[in-house]
Every structure is written in structure tokens, then in C-alpha cells.
Design a protein around this nucleic acid. Structure first.
Lengths: 119, 119
DNA sequence: CTCTATTTGTACGTATGTATC
DNA sequence: AGATACATACGTACAAATAGA
């Protein structure tokens, strides 16, 4: 079914979230290949541009990685990363800080997180 | 001058890096608006799709933010937060890790970041 | 080994919607 | 009300790398 471009629900976002669910639900596990662009076009009726935008979002969120002409593959959730002195992390989205006592705080997008000086 | 699509140097990447330089050099400061898509099209001779891809990269790198029909604006960086031992941060979106040498790595959404500082 | 099909990357063009100025 | 500017979405074409017959 074709999504009219006037639709307030963005087509690429729908596909993006569908694929997100496939991954988070475990129907697609790390190492699995996503359906090819052509397949997704056939399944969704969307244009290639739109399909690619959805996949691009998955990439930019870190859920998948695409290898040039091979395909797009589901990434595994990596082990926790230890932040060393001199390193910093940021994210486009809000960050959640969890303290030792379990309480949490929300940090604005773009906030650089640096490692507290050792000792 | 028009960049042939066969060129191995990706046109959007050239524009992306040009704009990066404008920002990092300080010629564009936080709050400044980037030239509009139309202006960039005129200046570069690229298609709108390509111009938008370059701007999309700037966004995903966290250098700019675009407000719907107003324009794309240069972001400033908020004050860093020091991650203490026992604390961790996560984000729904991809995290960018910047090392001491300036190199960066993309961490998948949901990656827990912990403080390496012990003792 | 060569030819071919598949798949992703890049790049172009066009049209419409919608919010802002 | 009109112009401007970004978002979404369609289409097309060719390049390049890979995999398979």
C-alpha cells in the first residue's frame, strides 16, 4: 500500500520503527541481514529513497551496519564501554545518567561526558 | 562547477567537510545560520538531494540543528559532565566516542558507558 | 575465468506539504 | 497573502563491488 506523501505519518519513520521492532524483538538477531533495498521496496511499496532513509536512520542509531554491496546487517549490543581519561562521549539525543545509588538524571543532547580524573 | 556522479570523491562529503571547516574555524559561530539549501545549491551546483545529504551529516555529527522552515543553525557545545566512578550513561541514540587523539568511534544506541576511574 | 545478476552508493530531477516570515 | 525554506516522497540513472553460474 502506497503512503501518500501528504500523510502526516512519515513513511520512512514507519519503516524505521518496523525494522527497529524486528531487531529489538529478536526476530532479527545480530549478524542477520536486513531484506535488501529492493525487497523492502517490494514489501512496502515505498520508493528507494524512502527505504534508504529508514535504513540510514537505523545506521545512525547504531542498530545496523551496511557493508558496501553485501547488505545491511544487524549489530549486537556491545559490552559496556569504559571511559578512559582524555576520552569523551556525546549523543544527539538526551543522555541518561545513572548514579551509584540507582537514581538517574537526564542530560541534554550534545552534552560531552568526560572521565573524572582518576585519583 | 558540476561534480560528475562518477567522481570517486563524493560530492556531499566535500560540501560536508567545507561546512565543517567553516564551523570549526570559527567563521560560523554557535547560533549562526547555515546558508539555505537553495543558496548552497547555487553556490555548489549540486542537487538538492546532495546538499541535504551533506547537511544531514552535519546534523548526525552534532554540529548543527535544523529548525523546520527556519534554517540550519550552528550548535554550541554544552558544558562537559564528569562521569564519576559508579556512574554510567546511556542514550537511545548512537553515542560518539572521542579519544584523546581526536579520533572518533560510533557506539550503538544503548551502549552503557562506565567510568574507568577506579580507586 | 568471464559473464551476469544482485546490491549498495552516489547523484540527478520533480512535486507537494507545511511552517515561518 | 505571498515568498521562503525545510521535510517528505516520488522517479531515474549509472558506478562499483560482490557473488554465483
Amino acid at each position: 500500500m502506497v503512503m501518500p506523501m501528504t500523510d502526516s505519518v512519515r513513511a520512512w519513520r514507519v519503516l524505521f520503527e518496523d525494522l527497529c521492532r524486528l531487531i529489538r524483538s529478536g526476530r532479527l538477531v545480530p549478524g542477520d541481514r536486513l531484506p535488501s533495498e529492493t525487497a523492502l521496496i517490494a514489501q512496502t511499496g515505498l520508493s528507494r529513497t524512502t527505504v534508504r532513509q529508514a535504513i540510514g536512520q537505523l545506521r545512525s542509531v547504531g542498530l545496523v551496519s551496511t557493508l558496501a554491496p553485501k547488505g545491511t546487517f544487524v549489530l549486537g549490543t556491545p559490552d559496556p564501554v569504559r571511559l578512559m581519561a582524555g576520552e569523551s562521549v556525546t549523543a544527539e539525543a538526551a543522555l541518561t545518567l545513572t548514579r551509584a545509588d540507582g537514581s538517574t538524571a537526564l542530560l541534554p543532547a550534545g552534552t560531552p561526558i568526560v572521565c573524572a580524573a582518576t585519583r
